[in-house]
Design a binder for these strands. Structure first.
Lengths: 212, 212
DNA sequence: TGTACATCAGTGAACGCGCGTTCACTGATGTAC
DNA sequence: TGTACATCAGTGAACGCGCGTTCACTGATGTAC
């Protein structure tokens, strides 16, 4: 073979990854195929050797972005602590000013809602996999019970960061992010009925258990 | 005058209104100037007699859409009842399936976040006027105290409807909307410290007061 | 060992089309004299 | 009262450009004999 055996597969992955950044930065309609290919160090003509259409790439990018987000959630510390640190990043000014490196839902959700069936199906399964991951971490006994609560919190933080990005007043943007962190934490407190460590009153008891 | 004296102004208003529907339906990047003008019963050439550029129209549409939303909030019954009925519409399957007639933030917020300064400034003042309207209705004594809480609830419902629109499973979409209604109601309950009618325990007492 | 051919990821020009924007023109009505 | 001209919202063709997509071709390496 004139190329190493997974060369084409590597190119495809590279296109999907760099397209993720570009789409989150400039939007779906705002990103042309030629630009997406140039981002991956290739020329426009090669695009159709990798994807049937721009729509198919978009669906692949959506699936990939949600997979990365799920994996990043899976690698956090266990329990509420991990989720809280994720929320702190999610609702930060840093995330607000770096959509290209951030959450795909925050950057693209209204465009996804207008997207093709393939894109919306990819989004739906990606979000379910992600929320099940989070639900299992928060409530290992009965993840199904908290799945919708997790989706509700997800909706809240998506709206918060989109709103913060649209407001030109940075103080107001920060106020919305801070308020939303409190709201998210409170809704999670309620959704997880018997928390593994009930963050406010029992940390001493838990630590004693660990020390024994 | 060969046209009645506010003919041009009427055309401008018509363009802004029909463009509101089109932009919410197809997105900002997804709506061309020729289409926007045809929607208003005009041809593309006349566009630049009304607006300096497409960007200027978008900013005008954003301002107009938020004004309409604020006025619709202002015309609701007083107190929490009015807000709750707004939330019930906002988080309905009907709103989910009719973006063109719905909330501009739900349809366009991530595109607005990527928009021009003019657009984001128009959005910022529109949202502030709207949230101050709601805050004044919920807490006539001290609206400033609940403004950010109102923005937090606004963020929550925007994210919820965008998420519901992106999910292809209608049952899941409805579950997200219902959960978000509960979340919004609960956060508002907490934000308004001494409610004019504390919806769960004191309606009888309030009604007796009215009957006296 | 050397030559002819096959493979195939990627190139780059071209397709028709719609984009945002410009501009010479139209035509209905007003004003001047 | 009638004619010449001014006004101006709107028309529709055209501008250069980038869009998504197609396709003949390149060139590096593999295989056949």
């Amino acid at each position: 073979m004139r190329y190493e055996k997974d060369h084409k597969h590597a190119s495809r992955m590279r296109i999907i990854e760099s397209a993720g950044r570009r789409l989150k930065r400039d939007g779906i309609d705002g990103s042309g195929v030629a630009t997406l290919m140039a981002d991956a160090g290739l020329t426009n003509g090669a695009f159709y050797a990798h994807f049937e259409s721009k729509d198919h790439l978009v669906a692949a990018v959506v699936a990939d972005q949600l997979r990365v987000q799920r994996e990043s959630l899976a690698s956090l510390p266990a329990g509420r602590e991990g989720i809280d640190s994720f929320l702190r990043w999610y609702l930060s000014l840093e995330h607000r000013s770096n959509p290209a490196e951030g959450c795909p839902s925050a950057a693209l959700l209204d465009e996804i809602a207008r997207g093709s069936d393939a894109t919306r199906n990819a989004y739906t399964s990606g979000v379910l996999a992600m929320s099940d991951e989070v639900a299992a971490r928060l409530s290992p006994g009965d993840p199904a019970a908290v799945r919708v609560a997790v989706l509700g919190v997800f909706a809240l933080v998506i709206g918060a960061i989109q709103l913060a990005r649209s407001l030109t007043d940075p103080n107001l943007a920060r106020a919305v992010l801070d308020q939303s962190f409190k709201n998210a934490a409170e809704l999670l407190d309620e959704a997880v009925p018997s928390p593994p460590a009930s963050r406010k009153r029992k940390p001493v008891a838990r630590r004693r258990t660990e020390a024994e």
